[in-house]
Amino acid sequence: MTYTSPLPVQDVQKYRGSSLELADLTMAYGDIEVLRQVSFTVQPGTTTCIIGPSGSGKSTLLRGVNRLHEPKSGDVLLAGESALTVKPDRLRTRIGLVFQHFNLFPDHTALENVALSLRNVKGMPKAQAREVAHRRLAEVGLAERTDHRPRDLSGGQQQRVAIARALAMEPEVMLFDEVTSALDPELVKGVLNLMATLGQRGMTMVVVTHEMKFARRVADQVVFMDEGKVVEVGAPADLFDNPQSPRLQRFLSEVL
């Protein structure tokens, strides 16, 4: 089931999300396997939320998809092609990642944060990079704050800059790693709304989150992980209203 935008199509930026498929993905830190044979498919333009207790390997999974940490075995298929056979730097321009702690460049303004990789990875001329960066920041509601440095922005604003920075590379898939966990409570909804909007506009998204309401209402698919394995996959209604495994039942009883 896809989420339809309430706005006329021509008014909004449309994204072309690609499909993402994890096939028996196994990841290890040293000898310890922290992710074991994880498999699921994310259809183009859909949102998959990954939930699960801490230590279940959710963040590790995201880092495996864009190869910040190289998988041990298995495969990641981006738009049907193995992501493990292309150059990591090239792959990462196609997969955006937003971090829990923003990781903005503190000595750059919001605009420079977005423009830096446009110039140095995409090779855009300076004027064009700044123009694109300005547009991206406007999209996330920060047109008035392009010259602020991160420390002069709230957590929610910083996270929106981080999202704009990732979007500027025109990724086919966006990964979100607990992006609202470090925010003050009143700022969470703004960021979640923004993410929901991206989903509506056709972005393929994998969202690691503890926001169960968000998962229930925005996700097309929910993945429950525990101890490095996928325990349950399904539509949000199925997982939240009718959990099968005792693990998920226990988890939901603790967080809902």
Partner: peptide, 23 residues
Amino acid sequence: GLDELDELDETPVPVPPLTYGSN
């Protein structure tokens, strides 16, 4: 901090607010 909650609504590029539960 509540002021910034309006930022997303005031943007020149329309960003539709999420209407929870509509789908």
